[in-house]
Design a protein around this nucleic acid. Sequence first.
DNA 1: GCCTAGGTCCCGTGC
DNA 2: GCACGGGGCCTAGGC
Lengths: 325, 325
Amino acid sequence: MASCRLRPLLYHCSFASKVCLHVLLSPCSSCSCPWIIGHFERGQVFAYGSLRRCLGSACLVLHLFPRQIRHTYSHPRTAKPSTVKMSWLDKARKALAAGHVLIMVGLCIIEYEGRAVSKLGEGERIVIIKKDRSILVHRPIGHEPVNWQPHRSKIELIEENGRRIIKASRANELLKIVFLNEPETYAFQLSDDAEFEMYASEVEMKEAVLLQPDLIEEGFTPLTDERKVGRTGRVDIFGVDRNGCMTVVELKRRTATTNDVKQLQQYVEELSREFGKKPRAILAAPSATKSAITFLKTAKIEFRCLTPKTCSKIIRRRNGLDAHL
Amino acid sequence: MASCRLRPLLYHCSFASKVCLHVLLSPCSSCSCPWIIGHFERGQVFAYGSLRRCLGSACLVLHLFPRQIRHTYSHPRTAKPSTVKMSWLDKARKALAAGHVLIMVGLCIIEYEGRAVSKLGEGERIVIIKKDRSILVHRPIGHEPVNWQPHRSKIELIEENGRRIIKASRANELLKIVFLNEPETYAFQLSDDAEFEMYASEVEMKEAVLLQPDLIEEGFTPLTDERKVGRTGRVDIFGVDRNGCMTVVELKRRTATTNDVKQLQQYVEELSREFGKKPRAILAAPSATKSAITFLKTAKIEFRCLTPKTCSKIIRRRNGLDAHL
DNA sequence: GCCTAGGTCCCGTGC
DNA sequence: GCACGGGGCCTAGGC
């Protein structure tokens, strides 16, 4: 029952060519793989996509541009594609079941009830339902989605009194989107296996300090990272300075705040209780707010300017050296 | 120079009708309003949209479904629309300039450099550019955008060696998206003026306690909200108990953590210094983690179970009563 | 502009 | 499963 992987698009509208192609997803009659038929401008019907599992063909059309069609196939199908009429509901459900990403744009009202409650009256929004059944509602402005549901939510598509409704639910959380008209609906089979690489994070700062401890201070020797302090806290780096004095380092990738200083101060107090001796405490961050600096002084916590980018460079330089050895 | 408002769609692909319409936005020659031409399946050219400012017509086609077209208009235009060839670049730029929301779907690589640095290799993603020039890049899975730029970023659309590139920049932040093919591109003129109403927030909890202080304790009298503590902190509610004893209340809409307790403890210490007398401290939240409860005991901070929904109901009941008075 | 605190935060990690 | 802390957090509100 494994399905053929067809990528990337099912409902297709070419922006560049001024020719539109509306492509339907239909189940293949020979196996359970989805296949694609396309209505082209002159009424001709083409089938695109991988039919590997049906026919042993290895052809895969990635992007359907009318003038760049390289592989076409007339699928042996009894039902005439042009007579197939699928409702919004059927298409959207099939697309979801096939693991496509759905984008819907239309006039809707939205209700949410869960950890909080929200209501949003009529307006035109973009709704995205992803492969992992996360759902996002975006208004025409603003970085953040106005409503959402994280992955693994239960997605229900409903038609009720002619209205298209999406219900996305998780434990004690319900999101309901009611479209007042049929939304513009697009489905995409998207393939994205690339690894997201992130540099200059707090983790890299720690790695850099462990590799090159004099970033903190000459003679500093890290002993452990992430040492537990008290019942729940933990310091980023625990070590000794050149005089063998216990030293804790807290790293921040962004401007340090009073809260950061207070937290470190707490750790100092708890470590003092644990060891009967006050440790040195160093806050390493690219900068600190004014009030944080004041607090640093009163709490006798030292500050070391350290930017995540510097640390990232050190890591990469070291990795480069390692590669040459 | 005011432009006609055309809503909601410019590049349109009907999902329901199995017929696609590729619609171009072009400037009107008589005035500065944008107008729309559509290429229909039989090669006929229609113009849709409000031409109010040109002709005094009040017609506005909101949704272009081929079988539901109610208003068509042959625009008196010398250049033949079918000969107008606009590149992806021109169309996307025009759409942005016109305040439309752009959605692009395609194979791309992404680089970010700013507060951190990130790289993402080839993969198919959804890019949304909103009216406020915020930009989001969504992978096929995951609630959160993999890359983004918040509102008011500078958006540049570029074609270089046949590749479509988006650069979104803010102070010291650059996001670069390179499409390896022409992305599927859709533009929508979205209208969304609805007010987002949120209930059961921490703000509502505070309002409820101010309205009905015995939610905290019988005899509790709030004096001020958001009182400053020390140099930087502030407590949610500052008041006195039935015995006139200074009492501070910290509200949390979610399970209280050790951090929340520690923060409140800090406030208690600072208020003790300020007044020479230790205040009572009450943490009001729907629940608390185990270790938070332990900390509450050692810090002699009291706990009051209070859920945001209860508070929200109280507010609404009160508002209902107010309406009847 | 800086800074603080909230968020339906989400998400990873460690226990 | 709970709990804790990071995040390019974003965003709103105060000063």
